[in-house]
Design a protein around this nucleic acid. Sequence first.
DNA 1: TTGAAAGCGCTACCAA
DNA 2: TTGGTAGCGCTTTCAA
Lengths: 356, 356
Amino acid sequence: MVARNQNNSGYQVSSKGKRVTLTFLAEHLGVSITTISVVINDAPLAATIAQSTKDRIWEAVRKFNYQPNMYARYLHSNRMYVIAVLVPHIGDLYSASLLDGIETYLAQNGYFYFVVSHREAPDLIEKSPETLMDRAVEGMIFINTPLLRPVPVPIVAISDLTKGPNVSRIMVDNQAAASLAFSHLRMLGHREIAIFTGPSANGDSAKRWEGLRRAAKEAGIQISSDLVVELGRYGQSNRTAKSDSGYEAASRLIASGKRFTALIAFNDVSAIGAVRAFLDSGLRVPQDISVVGFDDIHEASFSVPRLTTVRQPLHEMGELAAKTLLRRIKNEPQSLDDILIEPRLIVRESTRQVNR
Amino acid sequence: MVARNQNNSGYQVSSKGKRVTLTFLAEHLGVSITTISVVINDAPLAATIAQSTKDRIWEAVRKFNYQPNMYARYLHSNRMYVIAVLVPHIGDLYSASLLDGIETYLAQNGYFYFVVSHREAPDLIEKSPETLMDRAVEGMIFINTPLLRPVPVPIVAISDLTKGPNVSRIMVDNQAAASLAFSHLRMLGHREIAIFTGPSANGDSAKRWEGLRRAAKEAGIQISSDLVVELGRYGQSNRTAKSDSGYEAASRLIASGKRFTALIAFNDVSAIGAVRAFLDSGLRVPQDISVVGFDDIHEASFSVPRLTTVRQPLHEMGELAAKTLLRRIKNEPQSLDDILIEPRLIVRESTRQVNR
DNA sequence: TTGAAAGCGCTACCAA
DNA sequence: TTGGTAGCGCTTTCAA
């Protein structure tokens, strides 16, 4: 018993219980399936078909609620209007915001998407593209996921190390982002600044870190290596998320005994985790320590204290990624250059003038 | 130019640039496509095929990296190993946690899923199931989404009003959840308790509210209607999320001037929004007002103060939903009764003994 | 202005 | 042990 046949509603089935296919319609109308196909797809030949025939066809289509079988159609056209999105973790607000933007654009354009959330498991990252090709995806969006082997469809990579002849990359201008965060703290008088760097697998890590170093240098400030801590990756457990790693990283920082008056986190989630850790060890934010996050996820404006952060327009980046991918799929002109997104500093309550 | 043909890697294409199909392999090996098909699918007949032939076939399969075309296969079997998940908003932690669980189970079982996030737009909710049927989904999971018309495939509804002959429902025991929250506050001496009810479209709203009223009655407490406020729905904007509605609802509560010492929110996100609103108007949590949330999303244990909340095991509920759906798809014995999930009270920092 | 027929890649039935 | 062949539902020449 096949799902589509156990019918108890009006879907795709005539009153006599027969599946509504082209053949069914053709018999019903007494015309050939070719004619119907041509009319329905408004193929060039449709121009030559009598208006009266067309009308009868459309009427029957409506009456029986005929829906072409996409998979049969696929055998010819090889187009399924599906793409795939690879993310490290779907339950993470960063990915979720991007997905939100991606979905918005895709839905407007009749595309669906598969998401595979690989939790940074290397074998999944390696195998997924192949499995997805079986499903005839027309393109893929890689979010913070390395492309290990070439893939025969267009790819858009968001914040990601992936390179390749067929990949377009979208990322924040990490140089600018770093400098925004750094100069903000500088203006508030901070000199002893701790830094969270992202896991090295993360596409933003290296550039951001480089930007931070450069900004420090220009400001004539020395970043002590004791104050730089790398965030852990996701664990294998379902439960582990980034705020844990922020909490944990901040705890290490405190334990080191090194003095610092400000922290530049790697993202808002780790910033929130860090705030929690500071509070737990009796340090107040921002009175004792200023904290700046990255991303500006929604929660950042509701946390206590509200987070000062460098905003990446995630929703828009998602939309842009989808748009870029569909253009490439349709072979519309589309430059393959990296697209750099301008970040913006959002000053809220978690940073203030340094205490001296 | 078809995506699968613009090949620049090893996918599905022989060295001569020909697509690797059964026919291709058959020619290469000098056997019939039937034989290959039988061997590959390990059909009953495979038992009758010479081991040497089998070996040669598998070798060729590996050599050319043959992958059956799922869509051609679909025309016969009518099984695509795809389901759909309908959610109000993918960027919302509640849905994201459920999706996480759903994905875990599906991935283990070779299924993919489409997600459609409808933002409570009535036309999308109404039309999506039909569009999804075109895509041959074998089942659907409705998260907090009403089923407006019957659908010819199995459905699992999570926290949801949806009813129907082919729907299994999974939800927390809202009665128990309400009583957990209420009696916790009672024990701390609270009598003037404000309540957020969910939007009426939400499947948990009515039951939870009923449970709360009953718990109040049993405790001999009168819930003042001035202290009950209904959360707004999502707006049409991409930006609006639940914590806004929590913030806004709490603000209304404060503005009303009615005295209360505790709040039972509808979920953690609205609880966090409410805490923010209280703080902004000079009320301390928990010193002045105790707050209890629902769900126990990850952020609840990192917020300031850490949130006391009634936990729903969202990840597990997602897994359970997927499991139930696949059982029904495979026609394995599976009761259609509602599945009630036991909630658990997690006491943290946002509640304390009432001030008097 | 319309229809017949080939074929997309695969499975399943029946023969050999 | 193996192969031929008829579809699945659709699109696309090519004929009529």
